[in-house]
């Protein structure tokens, strides 16, 4: 049996009438374990869904092929939350508010702050606390 992997994905739903239970089918038909971090999918509006999927590479690929039949685009890299390097002053104020250490000090000597997107669970705490508006959400 092939090895399972976990991938963090962001699905973008253009204005569509997608009322199919996509997540249900990902679980039922494609054997994927799904962990939804954040979703905003409303009829007649653009929608977003940020989630982890765990399964074999093959199952994930087939699952995403299925998702794309609904005109949904799959972003394997861009996430719902981003840190704008130009705006960040590396003060480190966000760090105590980040529950998963996605925002962390990457260099103890210079106190440089870095963002590990893979660890981000999209709680949006950083967006509320950053005084420089360096953290932002795609939706």
């Amino acid at each position: 049996m092939s090895q399972t992997v976990t991938k963090k994905l962001m699905l973008f739903f253009p204005r569509c009438e997608c009322e199919k239970p996509i997540i249900y089918h990902l679980v039922k038909d494609h054997n994927l374990i799904v962990n939804v971090y954040r979703a905003k999918v409303t009829p007649d509006e653009e929608g977003y869904l940020v989630l982890d999927v765990t399964g074999t590479e093959e199952d994930i690929q087939q699952g995403m092929t299925f998702v794309k039949t609904f005109n949904v685009s799959v972003n394997y890299t861009g996430k719902g939350v981003t840190l704008d390097e130009e705006h960040c002053t590396h003060c480190g104020h966000c760090i105590t508010h980040c529950p998963t250490e996605a925002l962390h000090i990457t260099n103890r000597a210079t106190r440089e702050v870095a963002f590990n997107e893979a660890k981000c669970i999209e709680c949006l705490a950083c967006i509320r606390v950053c005084p420089f508006g360096a953290c932002s959400s795609a939706f």
Partner: peptide, 23 residues
């Protein structure tokens, strides 16, 4: 270090001043 002790309890601590920029 990111953590201080206040009256026997550990407290996570963050900065508003940027040491990175100061450096």
């Amino acid at each position: 270090s990111g953590e201080i002790e206040v009256e026997g309890r550990k407290v996570a601590v963050g900065s508003l001043s940027s040491y990175y920029k100061a450096l």
